[in-house]
Design a protein around this nucleic acid. Sequence first.
DNA 1: CTGAAAGCGCTTACAG
DNA 2: CTGAAAGCGCTTACAG
Lengths: 343, 343
Amino acid sequence: MKGVSIKDIAKQAGVSPTTVSFVLNGKAKEKRISDQVSKKILKLASKLKYKPNQLARGLRTGKTKTIGLIVEDIANHFFANVAKIVEEEADKFGYKVLYGSTEDDLTKAKGLLEVLEYRQVDGYIITPTPNLDKEIESLKNARKPMVLMDRYLPQIPTNYVMVNNFQGAFDAAEYLLNLGYGKIALVTTTSEQIQMKERLNGFTAAMKAHNASFPRKMLKKIPFTATKEEALEQIKSFIKGIPDLDAIFFSTNYLGIYGIESIKELGLKIGEDVAVISFDDHDLFRLHTPGITCVAQPINDIARNLIQVLMGELNGNVSQINQVILPATLLKRESCGKATLAR
Amino acid sequence: MKGVSIKDIAKQAGVSPTTVSFVLNGKAKEKRISDQVSKKILKLASKLKYKPNQLARGLRTGKTKTIGLIVEDIANHFFANVAKIVEEEADKFGYKVLYGSTEDDLTKAKGLLEVLEYRQVDGYIITPTPNLDKEIESLKNARKPMVLMDRYLPQIPTNYVMVNNFQGAFDAAEYLLNLGYGKIALVTTTSEQIQMKERLNGFTAAMKAHNASFPRKMLKKIPFTATKEEALEQIKSFIKGIPDLDAIFFSTNYLGIYGIESIKELGLKIGEDVAVISFDDHDLFRLHTPGITCVAQPINDIARNLIQVLMGELNGNVSQINQVILPATLLKRESCGKATLAR
DNA sequence: CTGAAAGCGCTTACAG
DNA sequence: CTGAAAGCGCTTACAG
């Protein structure tokens, strides 16, 4: 049950724990340990299946080689995929990842941050919830390596990695306008977070640039806290309320999914009765009939940049703030009308 | 930067670290610490924002309150959803979760297990890869709290939580037969793992029970290591090779998704030219047109049982092995013919 | 070339 | 009612 410790090896090798530690940490040369002793220790370690206790090491060195990753929802396609790459990339640097989902709830986020602090994680990748400013500020003041993802807090300059939400939404709206759609609705969340604001801004900017009208009644905001059933009801009655509606832009993947379901339940045909674009890609969008046009985030790039920025911080070789904004890609499928089918 | 320690509180309160530790661990009563001292310490702790160092505590007590969760692929819908509930449930018991994906690769699994051991996790939830027997055996011999998920190793009796793969596949096949389909193909993986075997067994048992023929040429196995493109090619040529094929059962969610894509690319219509059932549910299956009939796993139940079994082990109040098999549910949608549409 | 000793921040058996 | 001391398993500054 009890593991093998450095002491056990030292005893069997007839040397001190110090020497064992040096050899096992690859400092044999540097500390000028004889080859003979070195080999004996290495052999003994593998024979006894020595597993260094990271707790003890962490306590002593102050480094746990662990990073905390706080996402909105690990079961969401976007976050799950980012998490996977983050884990793979972190592994390359010898770091493990401790995850947690906030559900965009402040209390949960605070709880997660507290636990991660207890666990002495070396760095943080955080998807901030609303009103998390105080906690982010104090992490920043403590000079903890940290990078935000998916959104940032405008009042607090920090590292972050984001998709270009404004451009993504702008492109989507412009694409619909160029196809000749005139009555375009936007379905988004009630969230005042920057990523959602930017999507709204990009969308309205495109409308304005093309002199298209976007009256308030064409904008529907669904609370993040709404159940699926509530959201479907709200989207359906919104659509029914605008008889001449010809296109809808959904500002995030789960709303896009709800949207497809709502439109289906209303007996409308996507691509014929109404054009649809969603932010974020998803297997469902690709394989839906008709395929759903979407604004795809560069998930691999996002994850790689997150780790790269964080590793820079962890190794202390950065002074300035890193704010990475990556381009979104409009993936054209069939949901905006048969005429647009590109094969 | 440096955190507040028990010593700091002790100094400021004018008591010993021992007393502080007792009070902070809720042992004030038991250790008969005066109310006065107790209150002073508690007040001081919150004023100084004392955060107990879990590393130190873990080193001393041997308990880290962390469990390791090894899944096949955290980006897969099934595993991501299980992981999310596992995390929520574990949290209720004060445990954090350390995740990792194996990609069903033995070397990755070994690496993950090693890291988790370094980190002194208290217990393990493991989706075993092929040939992981030795490692599982040694964990078992070390009496580490452990429960397997999604599959088990037939040669090693351990705790596990699984869906009833045999019954799920049996029901699917029987359903197709009852609808009058005669030429039913099975697309599965080359994996020899028990969950895949059981799905194959359930399928063939249903065929046999109904005196239906299931020649070898109706069975297609795709390697787990195939790229998406390779898998699509293989599925397409398999389908093309059987002109009178009228139904296909895909044995897992990602194959079901590939299957839908393949059928689409062949220009065939699901539910008209060919009936389709997939193991596992997915948003995509629910919202596809036509909806894809599937064998759904009880994800919440699986996750809850995993934690329940593991907590039993962690608290040492179990002697016998816990093997939980949960029923699968056939969700009937439109992919098996218009006649079967149940609304 | 190698080792004795201190210390990371806790918990706990023991003592009074 | 409270405290001194040992120890969990490491690393590292210091000494020789």
